[in-house]
Every structure is written in structure tokens, then in C-alpha cells.
Amino acid sequence: MPSVPLLDRRLLFVTGKGGVGKTSVASALGLLAAGQGRRTLVCEVDAKGNLADFYGLGPLSFSGTKVRDRLYAMSMDTEESLKEYMSLQLRVPLLARLGPLARTFDFVANAAPGVKEILTVGKFTYEVKEDNYDLVVVDASATGHVVGQLASPVAISELVSVGVVRSQTEWMIDILTDPRQTGVVVVTAPEEMPVTESLELVERLRGETDIDVASVVVNRVLPELFSHGEEEIFGRLRATEVTAQLVDAVGPGVHRVLDGAQLAVDMRRGSVPHLERLRGGLPEGIPVLYVPYLFHRSHGTRATHRIAEFLGEELL
């Protein structure tokens, strides 16, 4: 089956190892989708507040904040999600009766496995089901936790054999396991641990869930400075007598420049095996998108716009 175009899906979970730029990719995908005319919601699950930075906003809350035309951002709050779930879906008449539940919410959520996870996933699938947005982009948990989150409706439906929750999990599972609607975007970087974790995550998602891996985004790809032949020329340049002539021409700082270029070459070279391991290790049919390393502005709205531009080109 040919892969469904990324932004034509309804629900994207963006995940990756900590530090690879998951939030910047999620915010860029949201910006790109909204720019193409889709009503888009971007939600941060781990409230670190970085999503707000990438949209140039103040702190986000459970009720969405408008970023620009067709683009909204929110942060997940499981307690708020529970309240919304109670009133909208279970139609529990009196909120007052929730008093004891709200007070002990943390304990309920901790005691009953999967409650927090399902309130999180439930909110997103609900937005899709109600058609409130064309696309919901989730800046999801890091690789270690995301499988548990995505598998929570299935886990709950296995544990809870009756009750409203049981029937609620059914439509959630339908949305989550439909590749035309839902996909996971795995963000990685060309380094050892991120690539290893990404490959493991893809394997787990395919083995333990029925949720489609929509795409892998390789972030912070360092540029290749020289072709093979040019690298050899660069090596010759570093011979003392040649460098001495360059010092005469452009000043003693040329040593710094050449050292810096050497470092950049080594950094790039160090990343190549990881890129190859990623490409070789991914199952066929998963599109891989590349986003170059951003030297200027790696954080904030400008970074979001740049990454959105690169992703836009990759998705053409």
C-alpha cells in the first residue's frame, strides 16, 4: 500500500529521543499544514514549554491558543482532559459530583494503569472524530514512553471488560490504527543513540501496535563540505608551506579556519555511518525526510519557519 501523504492524515504523533529537536519539527509541521490551508492543532504533551517558544507565544494551556490563521497550539493537562471527557463524552450531569474524583485524581491516574495515557490520546482522537481540525499534530512523549501512550486504548480495553471506557476505546482504536488517519513521525539526528532508539522504536511500533509509522525526519544533518576529490585537496592545503603562503595572504587566523573546517569535516564524517545505519535498518516504504543543521537561530519562531520550509521541499 502506498504511504499516505503526511499532511493529508488527521493525527500525527511526533516523537524521538530527547534532544533531537522533536518540538521544532512538530511546530514546523503544524505551520506547514496551516500554511497549506488546513485547520491545524499542535499540542505539547510534556509541558516543558518549548512549543510556545517555537511559536513565539507565552505559556500554553489546555484550551487552544491561536497562533495564526488556521493554527492553534495547546498543552496537555490530563486533569483538564478528564473534566472535558466527563462532561462531553460521558455526559456526567453534575460536575460537583466529581469533587472527590478531582481531589484524588492524581492517585486514580497513578493507580489505574493507562488512565493518564488514555486521557491524552483520547483528547486527540476526540478532536479528530469531532472534525474540529483537519490535522492534529502531537509533540508527543520521548521514544521511551510513546509506545505505552499509543497502546493505552488497547491495554485499557483488555483490562476493562465493561463500562463506558471500554466502548470509548473502540472508536479511539479505529482512528489510531487507520493509516489514512493516524501516523507516527519519528524525529532523529545522525548520531549513535538517536538512530539506535529510532530503529528500536519503529520496530516496537510495528510489533506492539497497529499504528502506522508515517515518516522519519532526520534533523540537524550537517552539510558535506567537500567532495571526495576536494577532501584530498584540503589535506594538501594543510601542508605547512602552503598554509604559510595563505597566512601571508589572509592573515594568521587561517590556521583557525582550517582547523575549524577540519572539525566540520570530522563531524560530518562521524555522522555518515549513523545515517547509513538508519537507512539500512528501516523497513521499506517509510519515507525519510532530511532537515539540515541550522547554524543561525536553532530555537524559536525563525527556526520553526526554516524547518517548515525544508520539510515543505522534502514533501513535494
Binding site: L225, G229, E230, L237, R256, V257, A261, A264, S298
Partner: peptide, 22 residues
Amino acid sequence: HLSHVLSESARSYLDHQVVARR
């Protein structure tokens, strides 16, 4: 080729300098 090596080296240094300043 040599000209490209020289200008790329310079560009790379200046690019990474931005990161080092940050």
C-alpha cells in the same frame, strides 16, 4: 576545485562561529 575548498572552509568556519558565539 581549490577555490571551492577555500571558500567552503571559510564558510564553514563562519557558520560554526555563529554556533560558538551562541
